[in-house]
Amino acid sequence: MTPIAMFVSLEAVRAEAESALPNAPVVDDRRPESATMKKVRGFTARTLRAAADRVEPTPALTYG
């Protein structure tokens, strides 16, 4: 291993280890969600919950 490669690899290992520290910077790499996508996601969640309740209702509703 060349001396330069050794220093580069040691620096990469140090940066990786420091990323687990409590004071490590947090990088938000997610794009903000559009309003349309939020509506679609909410509609899908409600539809799936309604379908799940029809297939297997919760115990509180079946024995009450």
Rank of each mutant, 00 (worst) to 15 (best):
T36F: 09
A24I: 05
E16L: 02
T58F: 13
T47Q: 13
G64D: 13
A52I: 09
R31A: 15
P3K: 05
P59Q: 08
A52D: 13
M1V: 08
P57M: 04
D29N: 07
Y63T: 15
R54V: 09
M37I: 03
T2D: 05
N23Q: 05
R31C: 04
E33Y: 01
L61C: 07
S9C: 02
V55Q: 10
K38H: 12
M6Q: 06
F7L: 05
A45Q: 04
A35Y: 03
S34A: 06
T47V: 06
A51L: 09
S9Q: 07
T47M: 04
S34C: 07
M1S: 04
T2A: 03
K39R: 07
V40T: 14
M37N: 13
S34Y: 03
E18S: 07
P25G: 10
R31Q: 06
F43D: 12
P25F: 02
T2W: 00
L61D: 10
P22N: 09
L10W: 08
E11M: 02
R49C: 03
A35K: 08
R31T: 10
S34V: 04
E18T: 02
P59L: 15
D29R: 08
F7Q: 11
T44W: 03
R49L: 11
V8P: 00
A5N: 05
E11A: 12
A50I: 02
T62L: 11
L61W: 10
E33N: 02
T62K: 12
A20Q: 04
K38Y: 02
D53E: 10
P22K: 05
E11H: 02
E56P: 04
G64P: 15
P59R: 11
A5T: 09
K39F: 11
A60F: 15
A15R: 04
A20G: 14
E33V: 12
L10P: 00
S19N: 03
T44E: 12
E11T: 06
A50V: 01
T58P: 13
K38C: 04
F7D: 13
S9H: 04
D28E: 10
M1Y: 01
A12F: 09
T47I: 06
